[in-house]
Write a protein that binds this DNA or RNA. Structure first.
Length: 872
RNA sequence: GCGAGCUUGGCGGAAUGGUAGACGCACGAGACUUAAAAUCUCGAGUCCGUAAGGGCGUGCGGGUUCGAGUCCCGCAGUUCGCACCA
C-alpha cells in the first residue's frame, strides 16, 4: 500500500472523538435559559429514555432523527434548544434490587452513565449542561412543589378507588400486570381492593383538551383521533328512575337510580334497568341477599382480565327491585345487576332498550325480557318490522313512544329531554369517558407524594421549606410490600399544623407524572423553582417532539394536562406543550432459531443466500419473521458494537436511509455495510477534489458544459435536500446526496474544463455541508480536508441554492400520443410551444405513431410533457 | 364491532395530475488482481422480438381527465389503535 491509499481511508475511530471534543470546546450546542432575541428559537425534543441499561437501536433512530432536525435548524439560523435527560424512576430498578441486591439508585445511575456514554459517542448535538434525571431530588423536589400548588389550586383530590391488589407481593398492579386474574410475578389470584388514592383532576380540562386537539396541526391525524376518542365526549341526558320499593329503603340516596344515556329518545323502548356490580344499590342488595353478594363477587373477580372481558357473555342478577318509568309512572321495570355495566362510566347504571342496543338485546334474549321496537327504519312498515337478532341503531321514525310517535330520533331526543327537564327528573348533560388520573403507587422508586397524615389535622401538605421530601437511601427489598412503608423511621414525622406525631404518605407518584413536565424543566433545569417563566414561556412550545407511537395517548395527554395545570398555577403560560409531533417507526430485525427451536443472536448466525447456518457449529438455522427487536427473541443489535465496528456516522446514516422515518425499518447487515461503503466513498471522492483541485479556483466568465452541469446538480441538490428535510423525508435527502456524490466523482473525468475547478470545489463543499445533519463527524472531516483553516460546519450557515442554477440546461421531454409515451425530445427550458410541438411531431417514433391519424389536439405543458390527441 | 393507515420490481422505497420504478440493498456481467477482498464500469419491471420496436404493468373493479401510482366511488387484503363507554 502506498501512503496515498492509507490517507484515503477515513479513520472514524480517530475523527469522531476529535470532532466531539471540538464541538464541546466551542460550546456550539449551548443556549441560554432565555432564548436570544437576535434569532428565532427552535425547541427540538426527543422523548427521553428510560435508563434500562443499554441504548437500543430504536433510541438511535429516534435521536438520529431529532439530531438531523436540530443540526439543520441550527444551520438555518435558529437558536436551537436540544436537551436530553432520563425518565429514571420505575419498577425495573426495584426488580433489579430484589433480584440482584443492587440499590435502585445505584442501578439507575450506573445505567445512565453507560447510556450517556453511548449517546455521546453518537455525536448528538445535545446541550448536556441541561441534563436531568427524574430520580434526583433536584428534579423530583420541584415536582413535589408543583403537586402542592395543584393541591392548593383545587386540581388534586383524595378519594377511595378500586385497585388490583397482589396479596403475595403486597403491591398494587396495573391492569396489564394482571394476567388471567393472577399477578404477573407472584402468580397469586388478584383481589380488588379499595385504597385511598390521590387523583389529579384531568377531567376538569376535558373540554379544553379536546378543543386543543384542533390546533395541533403538526400532529399526526391518528394521534389526534386516538386522543379524541380517549377523552370521549358524548352528549345525552341524565335521568332518575324512582325505586318502586323505595319505602323499604332507609338510605335516601338509594331511593332513585340515576342513569346516563345518549339515546333518551328510546326511553319508551325500555324493558329493564341495569346497574354495575360496584353500584351502591348493588351493595345494598348484596348486604341482605347472599346470592346477589355471590354474583357481585364473581363480577369483580372477572373484571380484571382483558381476555375475559372480551369473551364474557352478558350475565345479570335480578335484584327483585323495580323502578318506575319517569314518563309512564304506572309502569315499572326490574332492576338487574349486570356484568357489562361499568361503574366508572356515566353513573354506573343504564336503562336497557333491547330494540335499539345490541348489548341490551343480547341481555334481553338471555333473560326473556320484552323487546319493544321504538325506531322504525326508513322503508319499513310498522306491521312488518320486527327486531330479531340485530338491534336497530340507525335513523328512523319513532313508534310505540307516546307523544314522540312520528318524530325523527333527533327531534324525539330534544323533545324528551325538554319534557324530563320540565318534570325535574332529568337534564341534558355532556358525559366524558376520560377519568381522573390516579397517581398513587405503592412503590419505593418514585417521587414521594409530599403529604403528611395527621390523626387530628388530616392530610396536610408538606410545607415548602421542607421540600424536597427525599427518598431514604437505607431501604431493604428482602420482603414484599413497599419499602418506604417498612422503613423504621422515615415515615414518622410531626404534623406541620399541630406539631403532633404524624405519618408521611408512603405512596409515590406514577412515573407518568415525571414525564409530564420535563420538557418545561429543560428550559431552566437548575432553577430553584420548577420553572422560570421567562425561560419556559420563551422556549415553549416544543417545536418538534419526536418519539414512538406507543405514547400517543397517555404520555401526550398527561403532558397536555400538566401544561394546563401549570398555567393555572402560574408556572407557565403556553397553550400546548408540543406544537409539532412526529412518531417514528420501530427498528426490526430477522429472528433466528436453531434446530432445537432456541433463539439465536444475529452475531451467531451466518447468512448465505436464502439460508443461514450457525457460525460455530455450522448447523442449519431457521430464519424467522422480521419483527421488533426484543431481548426475548434475541434479534437485537447493540449500538455500541456497531459504533465500534463502523463508526457513529455509519450507524446514523443507515437508520436514516431507505425507510421513511415514520415507518418501521429493517436492520440488515448488508444495509449497514452499504452505509459504511458510502462513508468511505464519500471520503475518497472529497479527498480527490481536495488533492487535485486548486483551492483558489474562481468562476470564469465562460464555463464548460460539464462544469455548468455539475453546478446545476449541486444547486438542485441544495434545494432538494432542504425540501426533503423540511418534510421529514430524510430517506429522500439521503438519495439526493448519493446522487451528488456520484456527480462529484464523475466530474473528475472532465478536469481541466473551464470552470470545472470551481464547480468541483463548490460541489464538494456543499456536499460536506448537506451531509452534516446526518453524518456530522464525517462532514467536519471532509470540510477540514477541503478547507483546512476554515470554520467548522456547526458554525456555518446552511448553503443557499442559486435560483438561476435550479433549472436544467436541457430538458428531456416525454412525447405522448393518446397518453402513451412514444418518444422523447431535448428542449431548452421554456422553449416556445410552436417549436417544441414541431420537434415533437417530427420525432421518428412519434411520427410512426401518428401515421394515418388526424391530430385533434396538441397539448404542451411547458418543460413537462407533450401529448397528441388523435382520431381515425 | 368502531376508527385510522397501508398495498408500487427479488427487497426497502421514489414520484407539485405530466417520461412509473429515482436512490439504496440483493443479483448478474466485465475491468483490476496470481487469487480473493476492496474498488471501478455496465446491466436489469415483465412478456414478445436478433434488433428496431411493441404488448402488459403501481392490490381488484369502475369513474373523472388530453393524461391517474397520485383525484372520486365500490371491493379485497393487511397493519395499527380502541373496544360491553349506555
Amino acid at each position: 500500500m502506498t501512503a496515498d491509499t492509507i490517507s484515503l481511508t477515513y479513520d472514524f475511530h480517530a475523527a469522531e472523538p476529535r470532532w466531539q471534543e471540538a464541538w464541546k470546546r466551542a460550546k456550539v450546542f449551548d443556549v441560554p435559559d432565555v432564548p436570544p432575541s437576535d434569532r428565532p428559537k427552535y425547541y427540538v425534543l426527543e422523548m427521553f429514555p428510560y435508563p434500562s441499561g443499554q441504548l437500543h437501536m430504536g433510541h438511535v433512530r429516534n435521536y438520529a432523527l431529532g439530531d438531523v432536525v436540530a443540526r439543520y435548524k441550527r444551520a438555518r439560523g435558529f437558536a436551537v434548544l436540544h436537551p436530553m435527560g432520563w425518565d429514571a424512576f420505575g419498577l425495573p430498578a426495584e426488580n433489579a434490587a430484589r433480584e440482584r441486591g443492587v440499590h435502585p439508585r445505584q442501578w439507575t445511575l450506573d445505567n445512565i452513565a453507560v447510556m450517556r456514554g453511548t449517546l455521546q459517542r453518537l455525536g448528538f448535538s445535545l446541550n448536556w449542561d441541561r441534563e436531568i434525571a427524574t430520580c434526583l431530588p433536584e428534579y423530583y423536589g420541584k415536582q413535589q412543589k408543583l403537586f402542592l400548588d395543584f393541591l392548593k389550586g383545587g386540581l388534586v383530590e383524595r378519594r377511595e378507588s378500586w385497585v388490583n391488589w397482589d396479596p403475595v407481593d403486597e403491591t398494587v398492579l396495573a391492569n396489564e400486570q394482571v394476567i388471567d386474574g393472577k399477578g404477573w410475578r407472584s402468580g397469586a389470584p388478584i383481589e380488588k381492593k379499595q385504597l385511598s388514592q390521590w387523583f389529579l383532576k384531568i377531567t376538569k380540562f376535558a373540554p379544553d383538551l379536546l378543543d386543543g386537539l384542533k390546533t395541533l396541526e403538526r400532529w399526526p391525524e391518528r394521534v389526534r383521533v386516538m386522543q379524541e376518542r380517549w377523552i370521549g365526549r358524548s352528549e345525552g341526558a341524565r335521568l332518575r328512575f324512582p325505586l318502586a320499593n323505595a319505602s323499604e329503603i332507609s338510605d335516601s340516596s338509594l331511593k332513585s337510580v340515576e342513569v346516563f344515556t345518549t339515546r333518551p329518545d328510546t326511553l319508551f323502548g325500555m324493558s329493564f334497568l341495569a346497574i354495575a356490580a360496584d353500584h351502591p344499590l348493588a351493595a345494598y342488595v348484596a348486604a341482605s341477599n347472599p346470592d346477589a353478594a355471590e354474583f357481585v363477587a364473581e363480577c369483580r373477580r372477572l373484571g380484571t382480565s382483558v381476555e375475559v372481558i372480551e369473551t364474557a357473555e352478558k350475565r345479570g342478577f335480578d335484584t327483585g327491585l323495580r323502578v318506575a318509568h319517569p314518563l309512564i309512572p304506572e309502569k315499572t321495570f326490574p332492576v338487574w345487576i349486570a356484568n357489562f355495566v361499568l361503574m366508572e362510566y356515566g353513573t354506573g347504571a343504564l336503562f336497557g332498550c333491547p330494540s335499539g342496543d345490541q348489548r341490551d338485546l343480547d341481555f334481553a334474549h338471555k333473560y326473556h325480557l320484552p323487546v319493544v321496537p321504538v325506531v322504525l327504519p326508513e322503508g319499513q312498515t310498522q306491521d312488518g318490522f320486527e327486531v330479531g337478532e340485530q338491534a336497530w341503531t340507525g335513523d328512523g321514525t319513532m313508534i310505540n313512544s307516546g307523544f314522540l310517535d312520528g318524530l325523527t330520533i333527533n327531534d324525539a331526543r330534544k323533545m324528551v329531554i325538554d319534557r324530563l327537564e320540565g318534570m325535574g327528573v332529568g337534564e341534558r348533560v355532556v358525559n366524558w369517558r376520560l377519568r381522573d388520573w390516579g397517581v398513587s403507587r405503592q412503590r419505593y422508586w418514585g417521587c414521594p407524594i409530599p403529604v403528611i397524615h395527621c390523626e387530628s389535622c388530616g392530610a396536610v401538605p408538606v410545607p415548602d421549606d421542607q421540600l424536597p421530601v427525599e427518598l431514604p437511601e437505607d431501604v431493604t427489598f428482602d420482603r414484599p410490600g413497599n419499602p418506604l412503608d417498612h422503613h423504621p423511621t422515615w415515615k414518622h414525622t410531626t404534623c406541620p399544623c399541630c406539631g403532633g406525631a404524624a405519618r408521611r404518605e408512603t405512596d409515590t407518584f406514577d412515573t407518568f407524572v415525571d414525564s409530564s413536565w420535563y420538557f418545561a424543566r429543560f428550559t431552566s433545569p437548575h432553577a430553584a423553582t420548577p420553572t422560570v417563566r421567562a425561560a419556559a414561556d420563551g422556549w415553549l412550545a416544543v417545536d418538534q417532539y419526536i418519539g414512538g407511537i406507543e405514547h400517543a395517548i397517555l404520555h401526550l395527554l398527561y403532558a397536555r394536562f400538566f401544561t394546563r395545570a401549570m398555567c393555572e398555577t402560574g408556572h407557565l403560560d403556553v397553550a400546548e406543550p408540543f406544537s409539532g409531533l412526529f412518531t417514528q417507526g420501530m427498528v426490526n430485525h430477522e429472528s433466528y432459531r436453531d434446530a432445537k427451536g432456541g433463539w439465536l443472536y444475529p452475531e451467531e448466525v451466518v447468512r448465505s443466500g436464502s439460508g443461514a447456518t450457525h457460525r460455530e457449529t455450522g448447523e442449519p438455522v431457521t430464519v424467522g419473521r422480521v419483527e421488533k427487536m426484543s431481548k426475548s427473541k434475541r434479534n437485537t443489535v447493540a449500538p455500541v458494537a456497531i459504533i465500534e465496528r463502523f463508526g457513529a456516522d455509519t450507524a446514523r446514516w443507515f437508520v436514516l436511509s431507505d425507510s421513511p422515518p415514520e415507518r418501521d425499518m429493517e436492520w440488515t447487515e448488508a444495509g449497514v455495510a452499504g452505509a459504511a461503503r458510502f462513508v468511505q466513498r464519500l471520503y475518497r471522492t472529497i479527498c480527490q477534489v481536495a488533492q487535485s483541485v486548486p483551492a483558489d479556483a474562481v468562476l470564469p466568465e465562460e464555463i464548460g458544459s460539464e462544469a455548468d452541469s455539475l453546478r446545476r446538480v449541486t444547486h438542485r441538490t441544495i434545494a432538494a435536500v432542504t425540501e426533503a428535510l423540511e418534510a421529514f423525508a430524510v430517506n429522500v435527502a439521503v438519495a439526493r446526496l448519493h446522487e451528488l456524490t456520484s456527480a462529484v466523482a464523475e466530474a473528475a473525468k472532465s478536469a481541466g474544463q473551464a470552470g470545472m475547478d470551481f464547480a468541483r470545489r463548490e460541489a464538494a463543499r456543499v456536499l460536506s455541508q448537506l451531509v452534516a445533519p446526518m453524518m456530522p463527524h464525517l462532514a467536519e472531516e471532509l470540510l477540514a480536508v477541503l478547507e483546512p483553516e476554515s470554520a467548522m460546519i456547526v458554525e456555518r450557515a446552511w448553503p443557499e441554492a442559486e435560483p438561476a442554477l435550479l433549472a436544467a440546461q436541457r430538458i428531456t421531454l416525454g412525447v405522448q400520443v393518446l397518453g402513451k409515451l412514444r418518444g422523447t425530445i431535448e428542449v431548452e427550458p421554456d422553449e416556445d410551444a410552436a417549436t417544441v410541438l414541431a420537434r415533437a411531431e417530427a420525432e421518428p417514433n412519434v411520427m410512426r405513431a401518428l401515421e394515418g391519424k388526424r391530430i385533434v389536439k396538441r397539448i404542451h405543458v411547458p418543460n413537462r410533457i407533450v401529448n397528441f390527441v388523435v382520431a381515425g
